[in-house]
Amino acid sequence: MKLKATVSAIALGLGLAMGGGSAMAEGELHLFNWGNYTAPDLIEAFEKAHGVEVTIDDYDSNEAMLAKVKVGSSGYDVTVPSDYMVKIMIEEGLLLQSNPHEMENFQHIGDAFRSPYWDPKREYSVPWLWGTTGISVNTNFYDVGGAPNDRWSWSIVMDPPEELRGKINMVSEMNDVIAAGLFYLGKDQCNDNRDDLRELNDLLQSAKEHWRTIEYGIIEKLTSLDVYASHNWNGASMRARLQIPEIVYVYPKEGLVGWADNVVILADAPNVENARLFLNFIMAPENAAMMSNFARYANSVDGSEQHMEAAMSDAPEVNAPNGTPTPTFIPPCPREVTELYTKIWNNLLK
């Protein structure tokens, strides 16, 4: 009796499982995006406009997404890699040349993002959102001032003042932490000069003593006062400020990393036409505004400002104040450099 029930349960389960996926409806789009990053109203609007049903799955790092896409047959149509990852994916032949620059709404794209290093002619990718990686500081504990000044420096985390010691979080990303260190030392990025790296290694080792954590979950760490300052993305800093108004986003004077996420169509996408529709759709100003309003990052579409919430259009995190450095978009470093970075990173976290 019991066994029979078990067997039929298995059969039923497997049957459901196998059958469930193979029934592909017309008009689908499989979007693979960072978690908590896709505005629900944007997807709703797209579904309504084109009669396409969208499924959304999340990933938590460019590398996880790459691994999944690279082995093939992932089943996704559209993903959202960051700048350097777009370049990698193009070189690996993973992307469809969809020529977004010929699409109707491309005219709305701002000049700054029309020919980035990772896709100079915009043959593969459409800008999604972009931002910078700077420092959030809770000014209740350490006053850095509200406008750019001399204290807006990487020294806040690399050689922290007494008030912040032991209350600092760093982003858990090897490349971002090392980039911050190199900015502070005034050295080149993607650096393989051993003397520079030795200096960097010593700097990070001594700074680590003052760091409480090297992790994500930054908004929670800041708002729960687990830390008073954190290496942070601008949009996350804004979200934290909406809870604690004294949190200031610092653009370090030595320079800071900029990043830009892009929507691309995969070479083996099952629903190419719908994917094209989606790329064109998000370049419309009113749609780009929805993305920004949700995720709290800037988009690259001219004219989207008039559709944005007031909180967004005058946020200092999104609209960099005068006197702050231009963000640097760092291309993927060569393997040899990554190997050196990895050793420094492992040594730091050992």
Partner: peptide
């Protein structure tokens, strides 16, 4: 695609809150 289990959903949110 469309097969995100609950832990995948949560881990995706981890980084952005």
């Amino acid at each position: 695609p469309g097969e995100s289990t609950l832990p995948i959903y949560i881990i995706g949110q981890l980084r952005r809150g």
